[in-house]
């Protein structure tokens, strides 16, 4: 019986899908990864070629398609830094500076392989058009094109688990066609509230040879938030949102 399912699965994988199907699949991937409005904790670990590690912990809340607020909880040198994104507008709050500064959306907040667009990414379907999808080795391969030049990566190739409907690998390309980085999702976990998604994301980049970054996800859950949470006034007290 298992082999029959395997055969059916391989046949299904070979059927090409249209752009409309691709867009629907991308939206489904978004919803499987996270609710439309949520809170989550993330740990970013930069691993250097000699094995040294530096970790950052972020608390993030998101609402709808265009609102996100991320707060650094660790390391102590970054604690209290907050980044707010409203569509293509982005601000950085540094406690010593004491006021939000408008930053360009391509500005990096931490060093290492991760950049702002990885940390402050909205839904994939909000930032990318799904141009096509095809079955490939037990996965769907989505070809994505950035909707605007405010997105750090011009093109994405996303391999999606056909059953779990979550990404397992993403290749990010610049407009020149240069591969900037590869993201590997793993450790699919049940976070509760119907959220079953990868708990780990590893990133490597030919631009940072020998360096690797790991992002761990925890405490992902739906959360109703007022629009005013996503305001400049709230950035200095973002930590109060934690429960």
């Amino acid at each position: 019986m298992r082999y029959v399912f395997l055969l059916l699965w391989l046949l299904l994988a070979a059927v090409p899908l249209h752009a409309q199907d691709a867009q629907q699949l991308l939206q489904e991937v978004d919803r499987r990864l996270q609710p439309e409005s949520y809170e989550m904790y993330r740990k970013l670990i930069n691993i250097e070629p000699d094995g040294d590690k530096k970790a950052f912990v972020l608390y993030t809340v998101k609402k709808g398609n265009d609102k996100m607020l991320a707060l650094f909880l660790d390391p102590p040198s970054e604690k209290g830094r907050a980044t707010l994104r409203l569509a293509d507008n982005m601000w950085l709050y540094i406690p010593d500076v004491g006021r939000p500064l408008r930053i360009t959306s391509l500005q990096s907040v931490v060093g290492g392989v991760f950049n702002n667009s990885d940390i402050m990414r909205l839904d994939f379907s909000a930032e990318y058009h799904a141009e096509s999808v095809k079955g490939e080795d037990g996965t769907y391969l989505l070809e994505l094109k950035a909707k605007s030049n405010s997105v750090a990566y011009d093109r994405l190739r996303m391999w999606v688990d056909q059953e779990a409907r979550v990404p397992i690998r993403i290749e990010a390309y610049a407009a020149s066609g240069l591969l900037i980085k590869t993201l590997h999702y793993s450790k699919i976990k049940d976070f509760g509230n119907g959220i079953v998604r990868p708990a780990m994301l590893e990133t490597d980049s030919p631009l940072h040879k020998g360096y690797k970054s790991v992002m761990l996800f925890s405490g992902v859950r739906p959360r109703d938030l007022s629009d005013e949470v996503f305001s400049l006034s709230f950035m200095s007290k973002a930590g109060e949102l934690r429960e």
Binding site: R2, F5, L6, W9, Y41, K43, I45, V57, Y59, L73, D74, D137, G138, T139, W159, D161, Q162, E163, A164, I168, R169, H184, S186, M200, E202, D204, K212, V214, L216, S218, G219, R242
Partner: peptide, 29 residues
């Protein structure tokens, strides 16, 4: 199809580049 079978098929893609265990205890945050 069972999750186990899908997982088996995807092993080459799911295995991290360098297998390593990381801990993340959010209670301290």
């Amino acid at each position: 199809m069972s999750r186990g079978l899908t997982g088996l098929l995807l092993i080459p893609l799911l295995i991290p580049v360098q297998a390593e265990e990381f801990d993340f205890d959010i209670s301290r945050y």
